[in-house]
């Protein structure tokens, strides 16, 4: 057995720290028509890592996450998630990815439960009913499970969006401003949910809340004008220092 393991490990990518690389981006650029939104982005994130992505409006954060989650094709460069190329093994990658996006990705004319049942069928989730019960309880929407999403408040919709993203137990989570609309209690629920799955999961979270972002992450990145202005381990950072760095890097605009 040990020999086999060694064989297996040999083929897996190792980052300088020895951890396995989960997300790898090299020379990535993206144009929308003539507008260049991302310019030669290269970085790696190890398995189990938590990347917090900061940057002003329009920096290209959402675009980067959409490319990583197979929704948008890159113009140049290569991307690999969980060792797979999103544009060759897209169905295999999608099964491993969860996304919380700007929009909740929920059907307004279906109930909370019907939405989760629909996505559960799309992902082929085992023991779906039990999983739905569990998640609705965790995000405290049990009492509204038969209500249409149309009748939900913004924060409730966001909670359901969180349940939806976690439904199929993804191993890589992309969170695009997941705190939007959540009350302080819901933020606690959300972060303790993240905490329970923190191990073995890889996270990329976009946020404008520097404090929260820093508290959660293992690495911090600032994207500015489509370029990486800063990328570092959190261990080497403290909050005031990072605030200062952010102001310096992002000065002038917005």
């Amino acid at each position: 057995m040990p020999k086999q393991m060694a064989e297996l490990l040999k083929h897996e990518k190792q980052s300088p720290t020895g951890a396995q690389t989960e997300i790898e981006v090299a020379g990535l650029s993206k144009y929308f028509g003539k507008r260049k939104v991302l310019t030669k982005i290269s970085f790696e994130l190890e398995k189990g890592g938590f990347l917090s992505l900061f940057g002003p409006n329009g920096a290209g954060k959402t675009t980067l996450v959409k490319i990583l989650s197979t929704l948008v094709a890159p113009s140049e460069g290569t991307v690999s998630v969980a060792g797979l190329d999103p544009y060759k093994n897209s169905a295999a990658i999608r099964a491993k990815i969860g996304l919380i996006s700007h929009s909740p990705l929920l059907y307004l004319d279906l109930s909370a439960e019907e939405n989760l049942k629909f996505y559960g069928a799309m992902y082929g989730v085992d023991n779906l009913d039990a999983r739905i019960d569990e998640l609705l309880e965790q995000v405290e929407l049990d009492h509204r499970r038969y209500d249409l999403v149309r009748t939900f408040s913004k924060g409730m919709t966001q909670r359901l969006a969180i349940a939806r993203a976690l439904l199929h137990r993804p191993s890589v989570l992309f969170l695009d401003e997941p705190h939007t609309g959540l009350d302080p209690h819901a933020v606690d629920i959300f972060e303790s949910l993240l905490d329970t799955i923190r191990q073995d999961h890889t996270f990329v979270m976009i946020t404008h809340n520097i404090e929260r972002g820093l508290a959660l992450c293992s690495k911090a990145m600032i994207l500015y004008n489509g370029q990486i202005a800063f990328y570092q381990n959190k261990a080497d950072l403290d909050k005031d220092m990072f605030n200062e760095i952010y102001r310096q890097k992002v000065k002038g605009e917005h």
Partner: peptide, 14 residues
């Protein structure tokens, strides 16, 4: 309009 197309495209369906 409800942004669900992305949800559909994100799921592992052919």
């Amino acid at each position: 309009d409800e942004g669900c197309l992305e949800g559909l495209l994100m799921s592992p369906i052919d």
